[in-house]
């Protein structure tokens, strides 16, 4: 289950790794206008920021960076970040065709302004406290390595202790290959933490956003109590190009979209971004009445 960002380009149109926004929507010179990759319309960029980066004409949901997502979901000034000091290492002395992992981490940090691919913390959503874990796809395809796993588990443990719900927002190419089996084991580690959270009767809501694949989809993100996806997000286990290459079959229309997953019974709901915060707020109120089973294992 590699970091499959290479495989994620629809119909094979993958290009290596400029920031999500420029990849999706080449900015017109002065950034005043942004072209919608779905309907082709030119959108006044300030208007796009006002709509949380949803195209006003066709409702295409642009990808959000982690900080943009947090700002769009949480009550103003309520976010307090956790574990910023937890930083990645290069335990394998991993070197690939383009150089060493340690260098790649340093360059990525410089380019993205993030130290890792997961931002965690606590915030209020519609006045309710929540533990947040938000993936940043611009950081090595939000691949899950040791830091991702460690920060997520710490967030889950704090949430269990304080009995506040966990909201994970995922977009990922999968497990991070540069940390080898340590990355794979983060799947077990995060799921084990959620097992405890579940026994404590504290809910986990997962928001799956475009694109979400591999080790993330096959671990913490799909054992949530409620699974919500954004419209048209691509979500799956194996990347579409891998499946096409291996099976030599044409993929069905809409394969691995949020709508496809909903039809196949894999997610609870598709929620458009403009009503997401309000929907989450309503769920948090409902689950605040949860009564933990007596004698439940913790």
């Amino acid at each position: 289950m590699p970091a499959m960002r290479e495989f994620l380009g629809r119909r094979g149109k993958f290009r290596p790794q400029p920031p999500a926004d420029s990849r999706e929507a080449p900015h017109i010179p002065d950034d005043l206008w942004t072209k919608c990759p779905s309907c082709g319309d030119l959108i006044y960029t300030k208007e796009l920021d006002r709509t949380n980066r949803v195209c006003p004409k066709c409702h295409h949901h642009f990808r959000l960076r982690a900080r943009q997502r947090i700002e769009s979901l949480t009550d103003p000034d309520s976010f307090v970040e956790w574990d910023v000091d937890v930083r990645p290492q290069d335990p394998l002395d991993f070197v690939d065709g383009s150089g060493g992992y340690a260098d790649k981490l340093a360059q990525t940090a410089k380019r993205t302004g993030e130290n890792e691919s997961l931002v965690t913390g606590e915030a209020l959503i519609e006045g309710r406290p929540v533990a947040l874990a938000v993936a940043d796809f611009d950081f090595l395809g939000a691949s899950m390595g040791s830091v991702f796993g460690e920060k997520l588990v710490r967030a889950i443990e704090r949430a269990a202790e304080r009995r506040i719900p966990v909201l994970t927002v995922s977009a990922s190419g999968g497990a991070r290959m540069h940390e080898g089996l340590l990355s794979l084991m983060q799947m077990a580690k995060t799921v084990a933490a959620l097992n405890r959270l579940g026994h404590a009767g504290v809910p986990h809501i997962a928001l799956l956003t475009d694109p979400c694949y591999g080790g993330v989809t096959a671990s913490y993100a799909t054992v949530a109590d409620i699974i919500i996806a954004e419209p048209k997000a691509l979500i799956g286990f194996a990347g579409p190009r891998v499946i096409e290459q291996i099976t030599k079959q044409k993929l069905p229309e809409g394969f691995q979209t949020a709508e496809f997953l909903l039809d196949h019974g894999m997610i609870d709901a598709i929620v458009p971004r403009d009503v997401l915060r309000e929907t989450l707020g309503r769920l948090f109120v409902l689950y605040s009445k949860a009564v933990p089973r007596s004698g439940a294992r913790t």
Binding site: M1, M187, A188, V191, A192, L194, N195, H199, T217, A218, S219, Y220, A221, T222, V223, G236, F237, A238, G239, V242, I243, I246, T247, Q249, L251, P252, F255, Q256, F260, H264, G265, M266, R297
Partner: peptide
């Protein structure tokens, strides 16, 4: 070699099936 990458496997929730197995085994 790994879980099967395939259209049917995706339709029937390959990722979810693995995740749920992890969850059960952890507990």
């Amino acid at each position: 070699p790994g879980a099967e990458p395939g259209i049917g496997s995706e339709e029937r929730g390959q990722a979810t099936a693995i995740a749920e197995s992890l969850l059960t085994m952890a507990g």
